[in-house]
Design a protein around this nucleic acid. Structure first.
Lengths: 340, 340
DNA sequence: TTATAATTTGAAAGCGCTTTGGGAAGGAGC
DNA sequence: GCTCCTTCCCAAAGCGCTTTCAAATTATAA
């Protein structure tokens, strides 16, 4: 069943039917009702491609993951996309995913733009100095960055959480509890969020007049195993750190193993603060003792980024959104005063 | 730059240019080379929607996740999709994702089919008696099931791993080591894979003349917390189970906490076998002791399912694929003979 | 009543591609 | 010389929508 057949069936022109269906005002109320009703009864659905060709809009948003996999292996991305895709679905936008393949990430954007496959893209995990921004600006493809570049916050739309502030707050809490040797287990620091966290951590130490010790800082893939290995390594140092700040729950999970293995007690011998993206399968509160966290829902961020992007697609001339989310520091049982 | 402009630029008709670009034989070699070269130089890209409208094929594969979230929260899905999407990208197919929204999963399939949005879909996490199969058969939308229904293996294309065999093997290994009280921490058992695992587990026990004890069986969301809580609960029973079989690495992670908390030793007081989907952020080998696992790469499964689906889309009359993957049982340090 | 404005409807063009049904040019066979 | 194939190319139709421009109908004003 296509438009033409539906129109014939109704004894109307395609024009009128199309208008009735799409809510244009130049159509009588009675006619509109009739059209809507019959379209529903006959199960008519407009062909997506025909509509896209005619309107020039694809009603789809693209997500491109680099082929080196270091991003998509992070389980937080499925939650981000779930949030975003959900919002999009409700607003009539499809979600296009591109994971790897042999094509370079930048080429995918180019192809997306030139073939009209998507109306906009969401840029994930921006680097400290990310070349994608310039490319997308050049292509004229609307986008919103989830995160920020390091140098500039202008010239592109973004939503980010205050990673710097969060890790500064977390580190400061530990300092206030008397800890002076505080380890950091971070993500890859060419990614801005990890870099910001590093900055927040260092800032808090410097504020107290403490120095930065590279021996108790790790930056790398946020796997359980890295959490374990590097927590173990650090906790074996003399003097050992009495507290650790961790960039992901996965790393916390590994660090817990290390702590147990050394016969130490969380919240007493070692204080832990982890960053919690609110992943449904790894719950900070369910740990024993429950985990003090910096918390921000990655899923909510996904939904909001999608919202900003759709706004941008539909009103390209509106001002670019810059949205910085505060991160809550939630005090639970894994942090305590340093013991002598 | 569109076809018309490119054709004019070359002094050829759209027909010839289109044929040259798409590899049709009725075009001179010299002409073809010229066309290809100029198209490249001028950066011509065919408009995706125009092509789709003309050919009636969308060159896209759809993934629909139920809105209740219980599926997508499982981190294995991002890895599955990464594998599938990767394969598709290499073969010129886009990946369409639908996560939740207010639309019912079945309605999404209907819409996909009627609007021509995708050429096929991959059905994830089939239920023991899954209504999606009948719907898709009715819609005539090609699909491949990742997993199986319980009752029948005919009438639909599928790829599955031998969950029943894997858990039977795992349980038998423990029995052979002298364990007689073996707990099971499983996924939601209305999902076929979990149901099959349960069957394999029970079969192995029954083969030895042992009975099934519901007190040491858990079925639910495979979160870290559930792993912890139910391992803890079971290990506190008297007599306590001397071994646990776990359906996911996430649950293993939680169970390890429980074991440590009770002051027990993995591989001695408690033997553990987990199912490992090969997730990059949680490594069975990196645990201490390393974890004995039933192992099957979910990412490889994703790639292969995509391959089967594309074959099905392009040759609808070929026989339906039924592919059952063997699951390796990899012996590592977390299993040992029962101690008196 | 008639002129004018407002409301509804339609015919047809156009979006950018693929593909059908020929047609011209050149070579082989007689 | 002619016919018959190939080989290579093209004009035009068609995919199923949206949208422009114009016409028909009805309501309002004079």
């Amino acid at each position: 069943m296509n438009l033409k057949e539906l129109a014939e069936h109704l004894g109307l022109s395609q024009t009128t039917v199309s208008r009735a269906l799409n809510g244009y005002p130049e159509v009588g109320e009675a006619t509109r009702r009739r059209v809507l009703e019959q379209a529903h009864n006959l199960g008519y659905r407009p062909n997506a491609h025909a509509r896209r060709l005619a309107t020039g809009r694809s009603h789809a948003i693209g997500y491109v993951f680099p082929s080196d996999r270091s991003i998509i292996i992070d389980p937080i991305f499925s939650d981000f996309i779930a949030g975003a895709s959900d919002f999009q679905a409700i607003n009539g936008y499809e979600t296009l995913l591109h994971a790897g393949g042999q094509e370079d990430e930048m080429d995918v954007y180019r192809r997306y733009a030139e073939m009209g496959l998507v109306d906009g893209v969401i840029v994930q995990a921006p680097h400290v100095d990310d070349p994608r921004i310039a490319l997308l600006n050049g292509l004229g493809l609307p986008y919103v960055v989830h995160g920020r570049l390091n140098d500039t916050e202008e010239g592109y739309a973004w939503l980010d959480i205050d990673n710097r502030g969060a890790f500064r707050k977390a580190t400061k809490l530990l300092l206030d509890l008397g800890h002076t040797r505080i380890g950091l287990l971070n993500g890859l620091e060419y990614l801005t969020y990890a870099w910001h966290r590093r900055q927040g951590y260092e800032q808090a130490l410097l504020d107290k007049g403490l120095s930065i010790d590279p021996a108790i800082i790790f930056a790398g893939l946020m796997t359980e195993e890295n959490g374990y290995r590097h927590a173990l390594r650090m906790l074996r140092l003399k003097p050992r750190p009495t507290a650790l700040v961790l960039s992901s729950m996965m790393m916390v999970s590994g660090a817990l193993r290390a702590v147990h293995e050394l016969g130490l007690t969380v919240g007493k011998d070692v204080s832990l603060i982890g960053h919690d993206d609110g992943l449904p399968f790894l719950n900070a509160e369910g740990l024993v003792p429950s985990l003090t966290t910096t918390t921000s829902s990655i899923r909510a961020a996904g939904a909001r980024v999608a919202e900003l992007l759709l706004a941008r697609v539909e009103n390209p001339d509106d001002e670019m959104a810059h949205e910085l989310w505060n991160v809550d520091l939630i005090l639970r049982g894994s942090t305590g005063p340093v013991v002598a």
